[in-house]
């Protein structure tokens, strides 16, 4: 059965807590949604979206969220697809108390709407055996610097620590995936053939006689399996960094993001986001709510974007990248 909001979406309520970009007062449901207070079907009830960058939730904050949810919400919380913890069934009359009590543990309310969202991430290189990049460190940095920055439409970022890509970088507006270029040192190699067997991409063959590796770079995904498997440290980390993907999205008509740069450094990340959002806002003017992937699929826009980014990407830019690809999931 299909039912509807009890109130009209344009309805307003008076709240005594400021939300992103708006001071306390009479706010529309859309303003509140933008600030992370999302109208439910039930009269006067809202879901409060708590910011959990990269899915890392300190115990102190987790306890506070539980306390607040028990007091003002229902008997559960909801883990959103983007790693936020949402407290449903909060009456809007309690927003100020909820915000104040959450802030006792420095827990912030996240956002919705046309802006840079809280980044999602895997656990990263700190303790994940596959992790190649500090996804959690970068998530924090990016969230502190860019969270809430206004855009034409939603702008989702994520960080994956390796090519397994648990954080789905190909489905984000802009995202970064850890990568390591393997380098082989002949004098340390014993020709044991382990690397050729360990490689899952057929990018390393073993020489029939010497057992030494023959490397096919075009097949390499930069996962570092060869480096980890090598008993004698003959495979070592060369350049390390991130594969940059842009223009992906999910939804009814998903796009697969395009790889636009390879092996950018951690230090490059803030400038890449800043310049990308600048380009997005400039070229999306007058086009309504348009995702960056849709914009990049317009004639000449990929070239325009790469031109904007050339001083940041430098020699790490991919030559003539293709626009994001539409994926049909409806048939």
């Amino acid at each position: 059965m299909l039912d509807h909001y009890i109130e009209d979406e344009k309805d307003k309520v008076e709240v005594t807590v400021p939300v992103i970009g708006k001071s306390a007062g009479v706010l529309s449901f859309n303003d509140l949604k933008t600030g992370g207070y999302i109208k439910q079907r039930q009269k006067d009830k809202f879901t409060v979206r708590c910011m959990v960058p990269g899915g890392r939730l300190p115990i102190k904050k987790m306890k506070k969220i539980a306390e607040v949810a028990e007091k003002y919400g229902a008997d559960y919380v909801h883990i959103s697809i983007r790693q936020s913890v949402e407290i449903p069934y909060v009456d809007y009359h309690n927003f100020d108390k909820v915000a104040a009590e959450l802030s006792e543990a420095d827990q912030k309310v996240a956002s919705c709407g046309p802006r840079v969202r809280v980044p999602t991430a895997c656990s990263g290189c700190e303790y994940n055996p596959n992790g190649l990049s500090d996804t959690q460190g970068l998530t924090k940095l990016v969230n502190d610097k860019f969270f809430g920055a206004e855009c034409n439409h939603k702008f989702k970022t994520s960080f994956s620590g390796c090519p397994i890509d648990c954080a789905r970088t190909s489905e984000m507006d802009l995202a970064f995936q850890g990568a390591v270029f393997p380098e082989w040192e002949e004098e340390k190699c014993t020709g044991c053939r382990i690397c050729a067997s360990a490689c899952q991409e057929d990018a390393i063959h073993d020489h029939p006689e010497t057992g030494e590796p023959i490397f096919y770079q075009d097949k390499c995904l930069y996962c570092a399996d060869c480096i980890r498997a090598c008993p004698t440290e003959a495979w070592v980390s060369g350049k390390t960094g991130h594969i940059v993907r842009i223009g992906g999205k999910h939804g009814r008509h998903p796009f697969k993001g395009s790889v636009v740069a390879k092996f950018v450094s951690d230090q490059d990340v803030p400038a890449i986001i800043e310049k990308t959002v600048e380009w997005y806002n400039k070229h999306g003017v007058g086009k309504g709510r348009i995702r960056i992937g849709t914009l990049l699929r317009e004639e000449g826009m990929m070239q325009s974007y790469m031109e904007q980014m050339k001083d940041v990407f430098k020699d790490k830019a991919v030559k003539d990248p293709k626009p994001p690809l539409e994926i049909n999931i409806q048939e």
Partner: peptide
């Protein structure tokens, strides 16, 4: 072969 040598080294 991907996991045992890696874990032994670690």
């Amino acid at each position: 072969l991907r996991n045992v040598p890696r874990s032994l080294k670690e």
